[in-house]
C-alpha cells in the first residue's frame, strides 16, 4: 500500500502543478484584482467593493448580459438536453439509418465556433443568404429580413446557432443506454410493455445521472459562449444578444478596465458554481440509479 501511495503522489504531481500554475494562480489574481481599479500598464489600486456595487446598482449592460446568459443557460440545460435525449432514444432503436443519422448529427459539433458563426452569417445574410432566398422563391421577391440585426429576430437567430445541435448529449446518453443490462428490457417485453413504456419507465429513469451530467455540461457551456456571438452580432443590436463572457471581454479589452471586468468574472464563476450545485442536488448526481 505504501508503494502505491508513492506512485499516486508521483502521478498526481504534474496535474497538481499544472492546476496551480494555470488555474489556481489565475483564480487568485482574478479574485484579488476584482477589488481593485486596474488597467493595463498601471498598478492595481484597492477600491473595496466598489466594482461589485457599481455592477449591481448602476450597470444596465451587466444586467442585460446576465439575463441573456441566464436565459441561454436555461434553454441549453433543458431544450438542448431534451433534443439530445430524444435523438438518443430514437437512434437506440437501431433502425437502418441510425449510424448515418448519428454521424450527420455530429457534424455541427466538430466545426469550430468561429466557422459556425461565419456559416450562419452567410446563411442569414439579408441579401444573399439561403434563408431569405428560399422565402423569396415562395413569393415575396423583396423579402430581406436582417436576422441578426433586427431586434425581433436577433436573440432567436443567435440561439439557433447552438440550441439544436445536441450530438454530444446524444452520444453520452447512447453510451449510458448501452450499459443498461439487456435482461431488464427482456423482462419488460415479457411483461407486455410497449417500446414507449420501456423508454418512459425504464430507460429514462435509469439515465438520471447522465442526464444530470449533460445538463451541467450544456448549461455551463453557455457561461463560456463568446465565439459565435463575436462573429455574428457582437452582442447587438443594442445589448440584445450580449452575454456575460462577451461583456467581460468588452470591459477588459475595449474599456481597458480589468478590475471591473474581473469583478464580473468573479460573479460569473459564482453563478456557475450555484448552477452546478443546484443541478447536482436536483438530479442527485452520484447516487445510484437503481
Amino acid at each position: 500500500m505504501t508503494n502505491y501511495k508513492g506512485y499516486i503522489t508521483l502521478f498526481l504531481l504534474p496535474t497538481i502543478a499544472l492546476f496551480m500554475l494555470v488555474y489556481a494562480v489565475s483564480i487568485v489574481i482574478l479574485f484579488g484584482t476584482s477589488f481593485t481599479e486596474w488597467s493595463t500598464g498601471l498598478k492595481p489600486a484597492f477600491v473595496g467593493f466598489r466594482n461589485f456595487i457599481d455592477m449591481f446598482a448602476k450597470d444596465t449592460s451587466f444586467k442585460e448580459g446576465f439575463w441573456n446568459t441566464a436565459i441561454w443557460v436555461l434553454l441549453q440545460s433543458t431544450l438542448h438536453v431534451l433534443i439530445g435525449l430524444v435523438f438518443a432514444i430514437i437512434l437506440n432503436m437501431k433502425e437502418f439509418y441510425w449510424k448515418f443519422a448519428r454521424t450527420v448529427f455530429m457534424f455541427p459539433n466538430i466545426i469550430s465556433g468561429a466557422a459556425v458563426g461565419m456559416l450562419f452569417l452567410c446563411m442569414l445574410n439579408p441579401n444573399f443568404g439561403a434563408v431569405n432566398s428560399i422565402v423569396r422563391l415562395f413569393g415575396d421577391s423583396e423579402y430581406a429580413q436582417n436576422w441578426f440585426m433586427d431586434y425581433a429576430t436577433a436573440f432567436l437567430s443567435v440561439t439557433m446557432t447552438w440550441l439544436p445541435y445536441a450530438a454530444v448529449v446524444t452520444i453520452l446518453i447512447l453510451a449510458e443506454i448501452a450499459a443498461i443490462p439487456d435482461s431488464l428490457f427482456e423482462s419488460a417485453r415479457i411483461d407486455g410493455a410497449s417500446e414507449l413504456k420501456i423508454n418512459l419507465f425504464i430507460v429514462i429513469p435509469m439515465l438520471r445521472n447522465i442526464i444530470g451530467t449533460c445538463v451541467i455540461l450544456a448549461g455551463t457551456s453557455m457561461l463560456q459562449k463568446m465565439d459565435i456571438i463575436m462573429m455574428t452580432t457582437g452582442g447587438g443590436p443594442g445589448n440584445t444578444t450580449l452575454n456575460l463572457p462577451m461583456y467581460i471581454y468588452k470591459t477588459a479589452m475595449m474599456d481597458n478596465n480589468f478590475g471591473y471586468s474581473n469583478a464580473v468574472g468573479v460573479f460569473l464563476i459564482g453563478f456557475g458554481i450555484v448552477f452546478v450545485l443546484l443541478v447536482r442536488y436536483l438530479f442527485r448526481i452520484g447516487s445510484s440509479s437503481t
Binding site: M149, D150, Y151, G234, G235, G236, P237, G238, N239, K250, M254, D255, N256
Partner: peptide, 20 residues
C-alpha cells in the same frame, strides 16, 4: 477611444430601429 469605436456596431441598429 477604442471602446467608442467598438460601440458603433451596437448603436447604429438602435438608431435605425428607433430604439434610441
Amino acid at each position: 477611444y477604442p471602446n467608442v469605436t467598438d460601440a458603433w456596431k451596437l448603436l447604429y441598429p438602435e438608431l435605425v430601429f428607433g430604439k434610441s
